[in-house]
Design a binder for these strands. Structure first.
Lengths: 255, 255
DNA sequence: CTTGAAAGTTGACTATAATCAAGGCAATAA
DNA sequence: TTATTGCCTTGATTATAGTCAACTTTCAAG
């Protein structure tokens, strides 16, 4: 469930520290000249927890890449209810639609964990998309991946219960690590994980307890120890249309 | 909620009869020569109710455009539970991802109302995407619109109740007609509408009764009469992050 | 017109998650 | 050290939708 397909770089490490924009697959078909321009024109900013990077409705003038820290994308109704769109960590990107379309931000972006964010002016990318056909296709792939991810989440809202959604989230975190089983840390606060999965903190707490009971995982704070991955898969993926391991987990094969 | 942004042609009529592929905005930047080739190479098939157009997992070799009738896109878990991805009517398209990526179908497609479907070989479009930069951008826009639609639906699953989701669905149907208020017909069976909105038929029935009570709409079979649109908007859109009328309703302005 | 099947509705009950409230725990500041 | 704060958990209750069953309506076939 975590936004692997939203453009992750450091797939091997569970919690990448800092990432290099030049390594992002989005730029793999860009020549050195362009990458150099990227490096000089992009803004690198250090952001504090609580800082708002962009407001919904504002004109999109930058494409964003997270070098470190954690960013929450969300919308808000008039009465103040939040709908969290996504929570992104190091290596992930957002505002990709602004690369090819003049648009206004469809969500707010708030820093929930201090870090560094790179802002690339969209004109630069819009120019590249015209000149570099391969880059246009890579943008398409990025958007399509995002689309597929949302399709899956929409399905999960219908078919999976809270505990199963958490299980799926864990499987995706585990997938970012090599090897079988083992221990990992939640990438951010439990409250944030809850909002990311579209549930209340209380529901998350109870559902996590249920997942523990059903699959035998060990939980200590934000540290999760999994002895047997297939236990989670059996419990979680039975309520999903993708058979385990689902193809979108296996992003190394590049579909 | 109905798939307006998924590529609709005959926006002015509530239930378009047959549509012309050449009018689809996806092809607006293609020259006459290409359109002519489209006409000769595409397959036009007549399909019966119940017919399966494609199976999940099959290799994608066609891009589909619905000329008339109704197609259900869905996934299925091992135990047979369905998750309806979308229900498409005349003028709408599917399998757009196959245009730029070799992929396998992420869902099944079943004809739920007899009609005509046009199948365009993806090679033809993959060629065009390389030669025609504007077409590539139009594909990007199509995918991005689909993406935005899903973002909205995901939000609605969290923030709106069943009756509000139906109200939003109605607003979108009304938006396809010109003028204020008036009467429209459901584009397909109530059971299908229910599945499209991710709820059980019983829940739909009850929620529709609730919507009627709350907004004063008149219901007779599949015919819905709305005297005051803003009643629906007030009831429905209060639980949505988009203020009414939301921008994606107003697709004529082309964002 | 009758008949049968499918769609749609309604009622009773259950499952799931949201809400409200209280308390525990851990990190940090005083 | 204690106090404070925010995160997290737990309990009790409520809201919402799902499930199962019975019934009505609609529509098409005969």
């Amino acid at each position: 469930m975590v936004n692997l397909m939203h453009g992750n770089l450091n797939a091997q490490s569970s919690q990448p520290d800092k990432v290099d924009i030049y390594l992002h697959p989005l730029f793999k078909h860009c020549d050195d000249n362009f990458i150099k321009t990227l490096g000089t024109i992009s803004r690198k900013i250090t952001c504090e927890k609580g800082q708002t990077l962009l407001f919904r409705g504002d004109k999109a003038v930058f494409f964003y890449l997270i070098r470190s820290g954690c960013v929450k994308l969300y919308r808000e109704t008039i009465d103040g209810t939040l709908a969290v769109v996504d929570i992104l960590t190091a290596g992930q990107v957002f505002c990709e639609i602004s690369i090819f379309e003049k648009c206004h931000h469809p969500y707010n972006a708030e820093v929930v964990e201090a870090g560094e964010v790179i802002m690339i002016p969209v004109e630069l990318l819009q120019e590249e998309i015209k000149n570099n056909h391969q880059f246009a296709l890579d943008v398409l792939r990025l958007v399509a991946n995002h689309c597929r991810q949302q399709e899956r989440e929409l399905e999960h809202r219908s078919l999976q219960n809270a505990a199963q959604r958490i299980g799926c989230f864990f499987l995706r975190l585990l997938n970012r690590r090599e090897g079988e089983g083992g221990t990992f840390h939640l990438p951010y606060d439990k409250m944030l994980v809850a909002s990311r999965l579209g549930m209340q903190p209380e529901t998350f707490s109870r559902a996590l307890a249920k997942l523990k009971k059903e699959t035998g995982i060990h939980i200590k704070g934000s540290k999760i120890k999994v002895d047997n991955i297939s236990n989670i898969a059996k419990y979680t993926c039975s309520a999903c249309s993708s058979e385990f391991p689902c193809k979108d987990l296996d992003f190394s094969k590049g579909r």
